[in-house]
Amino acid sequence: MRSVVRQIAYFCADVRDAAVAHHRRFGSGPYFVADNIPLARSVHRGQERPFDHSSAYGQWGDVMIEFVQQNNAGPSAFRDMYPEGSGRWGLHHTAIWVEDVDAEAARLAGEGFPLAQRAEMTDGFVFAFVDTAAAYGHMLELYAPVPALTGFYAMVRQAADRYQGGDVLTTITMT
């Protein structure tokens, strides 16, 4: 099976600050910022838990870059790598598209990479973090290339292609 990395994501204290700093250093973006992304359900390490997070999405060459922050206290796939209160930040995951999130997560679990977290957004979109940190130093995010996702990726890419300067950040709402 051949997978393509679609996204590189960094855990940070503030997605807006991180996006602007990355833009200034490397020319990435512009960025679309979603605050408090609504979830219908989130299960971390087999236990349902609250998971309030925000993300900034931009294009960096051929790959989407995401900055993520956790807004609530408590365990999550983010906190698995960057414990609460540690003040540590960095690469959290790369993301790939798969036909079936649950089937791929089960296949990877069979290879020794456990499911760290599975979440469902209020619109039914599913994403999962598989714990590949011991082998690769980061987690792997899985999601299916449904039209809403591929359209979002295309919109971010087109914004980068058209960007002529100006506002680096645009706030968006996710459902």
Rank of each mutant, 00 (worst) to 15 (best):
R2A: 13
R2F: 14
S3V: 14
V4K: 14
Q7M: 12
Q7P: 07
I8S: 11
A9W: 00
A9M: 06
C12I: 10
A13L: 06
D14Q: 03
R16D: 02
R16I: 15
V20K: 12
A21G: 06
A21V: 10
H22E: 11
H23S: 13
H23V: 08
R24S: 11
R25P: 01
G27C: 12
G29T: 03
P30W: 01
Y31E: 00
D35F: 07
I37R: 10
I37C: 13
I37L: 15
R41E: 09
R41Y: 01
S42P: 07
H44W: 15
R45W: 02
R45E: 08
R45N: 07
S54L: 10
S55W: 01
Q59S: 15
Q59I: 06
G61D: 13
G61A: 13
D62A: 15
E66H: 09
V68F: 08
Q69M: 14
N72T: 09
A73Y: 05
G74A: 07
G74L: 03
G74I: 02
P75V: 07
P75M: 08
P75N: 02
P75W: 06
S76Q: 00
S76R: 04
A77V: 08
A77L: 05
F78Q: 07
R79I: 01
M81T: 05
Y82W: 06
Y82R: 01
E84I: 00
G85K: 02
W89R: 15
L91G: 04
H92E: 07
E99D: 14
E99N: 11
D100C: 04
D102G: 05
E104L: 09
L108H: 03
G110P: 05
E111H: 14
G112Y: 12
F113M: 13
F113L: 07
L115S: 03
A119S: 15
M121Y: 11
M121K: 10
F127K: 12
F127E: 02
A128M: 05
A128T: 13
A128D: 02
D131P: 03
A133Q: 10
A133K: 14
A135S: 14
Y136V: 13
G137R: 09
G137K: 08
H138G: 00
M139Q: 15
M139G: 14
L140C: 08
E141W: 11
A144R: 11
P145F: 00
P147G: 00
A148E: 08
A148Q: 08
L149K: 06
L149A: 15
T150E: 00
G151N: 06
G151F: 05
F152H: 09
Y153K: 08
A154E: 10
V156M: 04
R157E: 15
A160F: 08
D161I: 10
Y163L: 01
Q164N: 12
G165Q: 07
G165R: 00
G166L: 06
D167S: 13
D167M: 12
M174Y: 13
T175R: 14
T175P: 10
